[in-house]
C-alpha cells in the first residue's frame, strides 16, 4: 500500500539525510526502522507524510503518487496517515478530549473547528478512541498534566481519530521508562492487529524490535543496510548496523 522509490533528502544546510531509499510496505505490517541517531529514520517518516519534502524520489500511497501534491489533496492524504512522536506533541493547556478531537481537523470545517463546535458524533467517536487506549475517565483532564505514557496514549488516540490506514511512530517510547514503553508498544500492537492499521515505527531497543516487529529495515547514513525479519538480526548484522563498538542494551 506504500511504495517508497529511491527517496533522497538533502537539507538546506547540506546534510544528506537520505540517499536513495526504496522499499514497499504491505497492508497490516508492523514495520520497524532501526539505525543510529542521525541515520535518517525520522527524516524518512517525515518524508512519507510530507512534513518534509523529499529532494527527489517517489512516495506512492495506495497507488497514488503523493510526492508533489499540494493544498487540499495533500491534507487529504495526510489525514489517512496518523503520526505519533517521541515528545508526544500534544497541545498544551487543552483537555484530552480536545486533543483527540484535533485528529478530525481535516474533516471539520475551518470555522467550526476554530470555534470548537464539535458534533456529538465526533465527541462520541473521540470518547471511543480514548477508551481504546485505556484512558476513559481522563477526557476532561488537561493533557499536559498526564504522565509521559498517558500522553503518548492520548497521541495514539489522536492518530486513531483520523481513522488512519498507516500509523507513523517516530521513536514513540524513547522518552518513556521500560514498563511504560511496553504498555505503549502493546497499544500499538493492538491497533495493528485488531484494527488493521499498518504501523511504521522507529525504534532504538532491539528487544522491543524482536518482540513487536513483523519486518525490520535498518538505515545507516541514509541508506538501507538490512531488510528482513526481526529474528534475523544476529551479532554480525548488529555490528554492521550500529558499528563495531556498539553493545546491545536490553529493555525488559
Amino acid at each position: 500500500m506504500l511504495k517508497i522509490g529511491s527517496l533522497e533528502k538533502k537539507y538546506p544546510n547540506g546534510c544528506h539525510a537520505l540517499k536513495g531509499v526504496s522499499f514497499d510496505v504491505e497492508k497490516g505490517e508492523f514495520l520497524v526502522i532501526i539505525g543510529l541517531s542521525g541515520s535518517g529514520k525520522s527524516t524518512l517518516l517525515r518524508c512519507i507524510n510530507r512534513i518534509h519534502d523529499p529532494t527527489s524520489g517517489v512516495v506512492e500511497f495506495n497507488g497514488k503518487n503523493i510526492t508533489s501534491i499540494k493544498g487540499k489533496e495533500l491534507r487529504e492524504a495526510r489525514s489517512k496517515i496518523g503520526m505519533i512522536f517521541q515528545h508526544f506533541n500534544l497541545i498544551p493547556r487543552r483537555s484530552v478530549l480536545v486533543n483527540v478531537l484535533t485528529g478530525k481537523m481535516a474533516k471539520l470545517g475551518l470555522i467550526k473547528s476554530i470555534l470548537g463546535l464539535y458534533s456529538e458524533e465526533d465527541k462520541k467517536e473521540a470518547l471511543e478512541k480514548i477508551k481504546i487506549v485505556g484512558l476513559e475517565g481522563k477526557e476532561n483532564v488537561r493533557a499536559d498534566n498526564l504522565s509521559g505514557g498517558q500522553q503518548q496514549r492520548v497521541s495514539i488516540a489522536r492518530a486513531l481519530m483520523q481513522n488512519p490506514e498507516v500509523l507513523l511512530a517516530d521513536e514513540p517510547v524513547a522518552s518513556l521508562d521500560p514498563a511504560t514503553s511496553h504498555s505503549v508498544m502493546q497499544y500499538l500492537e493492538k491497533i495493528n492487529k485488531e484494527y488493521g492499521v499498518t504501523v511504521i515505527c522507529n525504534l532504538h531497543f532491539l528487544s522491543l524490535v524482536r518482540q513487536y516487529a513483523t519486518r525490520v529495515i535498518a538505515l545507516k547514513n541514509g541508506e538501507i543496510v538490512f531488510q528482513g525479519g526481526p529474528k534475523e538480526i544476529n551479532d554480525t548484522w548488529f555490528k554492521e548496523i550500529y558499528g563495531e563498538e556498539a553493545v546491545e542494551v536490553t529493555i525488559n
Binding site: N49, R75, A77, R78, M83, P92, R94, M105, A106, I114
Partner: peptide, 18 residues
C-alpha cells in the same frame, strides 16, 4: 504541536490555532 497538527492533515489556519 505544529508538526503534529500538520500530520493530521489540518489547514494552515487550524495548525496555527491549535
Amino acid at each position: 504541536p505544529i508538526e503534529a497538527m500538520t500530520a493530521t492533515g489540518a489547514h494552515q489556519i487550524q495548525i496555527i490555532w491549535f
